[in-house]
């Protein structure tokens, strides 16, 4: 059976088309639901196997990115969300969606505390929005259902506020020890996590690009897997093709396929 995914739209999030395509390509059914319609009928969330907070500029990133969208979701949907997570469903947040989830406290979700924000995604170290391709390495020990079995992946970043930060060093240690880090920015040649711009495009601490909750079912990342579904999305695809190394699909699809596989048991 095809798992059903709900994508929340409205108020400036804008990656609905490619996110829908990604899930469909991976074998899921997708409904795009406007935030107002979901708030009006919050119970319908439980009809779905997965929820996605997509990328974009909810409320223009005003009052810091994701802040207002997160407040509204938490204000109106907290109970339903808790129920949804408790019922073994999956939640994905990409870019602005990751920011929203972090602001809400869904991530890192240490000790099951889902609505208590612990970290911030703040303004990039370079001071401005960046759109460029980066190299990611997935944590092999992570139990994130989206990234299972993945090693390295090139993906685009497109954000102004992606630096994972907290002034509280203890929190970082906890995140690391609880296995909440799902992927990091790495140097393309050495494969090692890096703090150097532009390989690490935002100066994120410990080069963290994505977080999972301890269950592995709630996951968010700054880079955009839904923007690498076609092999021709890769900036070097012409070279890959000449060398016979062009993949059939963009690698970003693998995260969605992983989630669908998980949901299909």
């Amino acid at each position: 059976m095809k798992p059903k995914i709900l994508i929340i739209t409205g108020y400036g999030v804008n990656c609905e088309a490619e996110s829908k395509y990604a899930w469909e390509l991976a074998g899921a059914d997708v409904d795009l639901v406007h935030l107002n319609d979901l708030i009006e009928n919050a119970g319908r969330l439980q009809d779905y196997a997965g929820l996605m907070f997509i990328g974009g500029f909810s409320y223009g990133d005003h009052m810091t990115s994701g802040h207002v969208f997160a407040r509204r979701v938490k204000h109106h949907l907290q109970e339903e969300l808790q129920k949804f997570i408790d019922a073994e469903r999956v939640v994905l947040g990409i870019c602005n969606g990751f920011q929203v989830m972090t602001k809400m406290g869904l991530l890192p979700g240490l000790n099951g505390g889902y609505f208590d924000p612990k970290v911030a995604l703040m303004q990039n170290e370079c001071g401005c929005f960046q759109n460029r391709w980066v190299e990611l390495a997935f944590e092999q020990t992570s139990n994130c259902v989206f990234t299972k079995g993945l090693d390295r992946m090139p993906l685009p970043v497109r954000h102004g506020e992606g630096k994972l930060f907290t002034p509280d060093k203890k929190i970082f240690a906890e995140i690391e020890s609880a296995g909440c880090v799902a992927c990091r920015y790495v140097d393309g040649t050495s494969g090692k996590p890096t703090q150097d711009f532009p390989q690490n495009p935002n100066g994120s601490l410990n080069a963290i690009a994505g977080l999972t909750d301890p269950t592995g079912r709630v996951f968010g990342m700054m880079p955009h897997p839904e923007a690498y579904l076609f092999p021709e999305n890769h900036p070097q695809w012409k070279r890959q093709k000449l060398e016979g190394a062009l993949p059939e699909h963009g690698s970003g699809l693998q995260l969605f396929e992983n989630a669908v596989k998980f949901l299909q048991g």
Binding site: E18, N131, R132, G160, L229, E232, R239
Partner: peptide, 22 residues
């Protein structure tokens, strides 16, 4: 130019910058 989002929608084929170092 790097501060402009050129990849939302995920449809790009030849991006504004090309080459080994893009």
């Amino acid at each position: 130019s790097r501060s402009y989002d050129g990849e939302v929608k995920g449809l790009s084929v030849i991006k504004p910058f090309v080459g080994v170092y893009e």
